[in-house]
């Protein structure tokens, strides 16, 4: 029982981090119909930024983390402006460009940061005994807390602010939105930046637990994509539910089926969703 709870807890923690990362993808798909294949690379870069800001430049990790996310936000805005904006309406080229970009970023990371996994300093060390049943790393518990905070913030942003209303208007009907006087170019750019920043947040949160490597990025992108398809493209609620389902399933699967097949459960879900419910759990059937 203790073991089961341990696997389940691990699943929850990974699940919320999955959700943050997936919301980043979902936001961009929902508004722009663009899949950002370089999502995982942004996540990795954030991890490396936070590593170097705190260890090479001696910043406190509490400062290094948000600063890294901010850098990723800027990179996201630049990406949108220089590469993505000219491809609007041409789905094929946006797919090609973001895929090639992912390879470019991955190899730049290899060049800049080297091939070794890097782990920024943990904010907190040691472990806590939970319900007197099992030991659990304190850093993991803290990451769980931070992730929930970020999720609440994103929901507030989308549901309650002017920005969120514009975003929702655009993803429902672009022409209508521009009639309403919404500057969709600006919203697109900021949303892309925000999507990137969410990838970055997931990166800085997880890096002290699972160190980042340049080659680890495609698995991260794929997990996010599966969550988005499972939850339904463009649905935020779907991302949270999908992220948790995937996190828990992967961890229980790894424990009771095979650790080596940890990541295959995600793709089995992907195929099942495509066969039985291609619009996802909370997506709109068109």
């Amino acid at each position: 029982m203790a073991e089961f709870l341990m696997y389940f807890t691990n699943g929850l923690v990974i699940g919320v981090i999955n959700a943050i990362s997936a919301i980043g993808v979902s936001l961009i798909v929902g508004i722009m119909r663009v899949i950002n294949f370089a999502h995982g690379e942004l996540y990795i870069f954030a991890g490396y930024f936070s590593y170097h800001l705190s260890l090479t430049f001696g910043l406190s990790p509490i400062l290094a983390m948000p600063l890294s996310v901010f850098f990723i936000f800027l990179i996201g805005i630049l990406m949108e402006r220089l590469l993505i904006r000219p491809t609007y309406g041409d789905e094929m080229y946006s797919l090609i460009i973001t895929f090639v970009l992912s390879i470019v970023l991955q190899n730049s990371a290899l060049l800049i940061f080297g091939p070794y996994p890097n782990k920024p300093p943990a904010l907190i060390s040691g472990s806590t005994q939970i319900f007197g049943l099992f030991h659990y790393g304190n850093q993991r518990l803290l990451s769980f807390g931070i992730s929930i905070g970020i999720l609440l913030f994103v929901f507030y942003l989308i549901k309650k602010t002017w920005f969120g209303k514009s975003v929702r208007a655009i993803s429902q009907d672009r022409e209508m939105a521009s009639l309403m006087g919404i500057d969709h170019w600006r919203i697109n750019m900021i949303s892309f930046g925000l999507g990137a920043a969410l990838a970055g947040s997931a990166g800085v949160i997880i890096a002290p637990i699972f160190p980042v490597t340049p080659t680890g990025s495609s698995a991260i992108s794929l997990t996010a994509f599966v969550v988005v398809v499972l939850g339904g493209m463009g649905s935020l609620k779907g991302c949270v539910v999908g992220g948790l389902i995937l996190g828990i399933l992967e961890n229980l699967g790894a424990a009771y089926v095979s650790t080596m097949y940890r990541h295959i459960f995600a793709f089995i879900i992907l195929i099942l969703v495509l066969v039985f419910r291609p619009w996802g759990l909370f997506g709109q059937k068109t």
Partner: peptide, 28 residues
């Protein structure tokens, strides 16, 4: 058959997923 009727993004995502499944199976 599975994803072309769903549109371009789905084909790209699914084929990417398929590559990854294949890699995991061959590796393990």
């Amino acid at each position: 058959y599975l994803c072309i009727r769903m549109g371009g993004i789905y084909l790209s995502l699914t084929t990417l997923g398929f590559s990854e499944i294949l890699r995991i199976i061959i590796t393990n």
